[in-house]
C-alpha cells in the first residue's frame, strides 16, 4: 500500500509537469491549429536559464523571473520569425517549422549554456514529508502547487478577461474573430508568449526533480503531446487530466513492470489514442447545428 501511494505521489508530480506542457500545446493549437513541438524547449530554457543565472549569483526568484521572461521572448520570436512569415501555410508545414525551430533552439542552447546535466537545489529543502507510509518531497508540492496555480490563473484569464475571450473566440471561429475586429496575429503571438511562460515555469519547478540539459525538450514535448492527445487535443481540462494520467501510467509502469520501458508508456498511449479514442477523452466537437 505504501509503495502504491509512493508511486501515486511521483506519478502526480511528473504528471503535473506533463500537464503544463500539454496546456502549452493546447493554447497554441486552439489559436492556430499548430502543434508546437518546440513546447518542450521552453521547459528547458526555464530550467537552464535559472541554473545559469543562479550560478551567476542571482537569487532563485530573480533568476526564475528572468528565465521566464527570456522564454517568453523566445516564444514571441518563434512566432514572429518562423510562424508569422509562413502565414497561410498548411498546419503540417507549420508543425514542421516548429520541429526545425526546436532543433535550432537546442543548438543555440548548447552554445549559450553547455552540454552537461544541471540541477537546482530544491526550493524548500530535501526533507521528505511522511504521508500514510509513503513520503512526499517538498519539491513535489512546489510542482503540484505551481500547476494548480497556473491552471487557475489560465482559467481566470480565459473566462474573465476580454483578451482571454478573444483567444477563445479565435479558437472557435477564426473568420468571425477577424470580422468582429480581433487581430488574430496578435492573439496568436499572445498564445505563443503564454505557452512559453507556462513551459518555462514548469521547467523551473521541475528541474530540482528531473534535472535539465539542452536537449531534454524533445522528450518533454513528446510526453506533453501524448498528454494533450489523450485528453483530446484542444481541450484545456483534457490537457491537465491527460498529463496526470500519463504521469501516473508512466510511474506505475516503471514501478510494477520495468523502469527500462518508462518512456515507452507515453508512446503506447499515443498509439492507443490513435486506435481507439481518436478524439481523446474530452475531445469531440462533432455535433454542430447548421
Amino acid at each position: 500500500m505504501s509503495e502504491f501511494l509512493q508511486l501515486v505521489f511521483s506519478g502526480l508530480t511528473v504528471g503535473a509537469i506533463y500537464a503544463l506542457i500539454a496546456l502549452g500545446f493546447t493554447l497554441i493549437y486552439n489559436a492556430s491549429d499548430v502543434i508546437n513541438f518546440a513546447q518542450g524547449d521552453f521547459v528547458m530554457i526555464g530550467g537552464m536559464a535559472t541554473v545559469f543565472l543562479m550560478s551567476a549569483g542571482l537569487a532563485l526568484p530573480v533568476a526564475a523571473f528572468i528565465a521566464v521572461v527570456a522564454s517568453v521572448g523566445v516564444g514571441l520570436l518563434l512566432h514572429r520569425l518562423a510562424i508569422e512569415p509562413a502565414r497561410g501555410a498548411s498546419p503540417v508545414t507549420l508543425i514542421m517549422i516548429t520541429i526545425g525551430a526546436s532543433i535550432f533552439i537546442k543548438g543555440v542552447a548548447q552554445i549559450v549554456f553547455d552540454k552537461q546535466f544541471h540541477s537546482l537545489p530544491a526550493f524548500s529543502g530535501d526533507t521528505p514529508i511522511p504521508v500514510g507510509g509513503a513520503t512526499l518531497l517538498p519539491q513535489s508540492l512546489w510542482v503540484l502547487g505551481t500547476t494548480l496555480g497556473l491552471v487557475v490563473a489560465l482559467y481566470l484569464f480565459l473566462e474573465h478577461t476580454l483578451s482571454g475571450k478573444a483567444l477563445l473566440a479565435t479558437a472557435a471561429n477564426r473568420l468571425a474573430a477577424r470580422l468582429v475586429g480581433i487581430n488574430v496575429t496578435l492573439i496568436l503571438a499572445m498564445a505563443f508568449g503564454l505557452s512559453a511562460a507556462i513551459g518555462a515555469l514548469a521547467g523551473v519547478v521541475a528541474t530540482p526533480i528531473t534535472l535539465t540539459r539542452y536537449d531534454i525538450g524533445t522528450l518533454f514535448a513528446l510526453k506533453g503531446f501524448a498528454a494533450a492527445m489523450l485528453g483530446g487535443m484542444g481541450n484545456p481540462v483534457g490537457a491537465v487530466v491527460g498529463g496526470l494520467l500519463i504521469g501516473l501510467l508512466e510511474t506505475f509502469g516503471a514501478g510494477y513492470v520495468s523502469s527500462t520501458y518508462k518512456d515507452a508508456v507515453a508512446f503506447l498511449m499515443i498509439l492507443f489514442v490513435l486506435f481507439f479514442l481518436p478524439r481523446g477523452l474530452f475531445g469531440g466537437r462533432s455535433v454542430e447545428r447548421v
Binding site: A166, L168, A169, A172, A176, A177, R285, E288
Partner: peptide, 14 residues
C-alpha cells in the same frame, strides 16, 4: 459563424 462554445452574451460582448 457564431462563436459556438461561447455564451450568447459573450458572443455579443466580443
Amino acid at each position: 459563424q457564431v462563436f459556438g462554445p461561447l455564451s450568447v452574451e459573450d458572443n455579443l460582448r466580443l
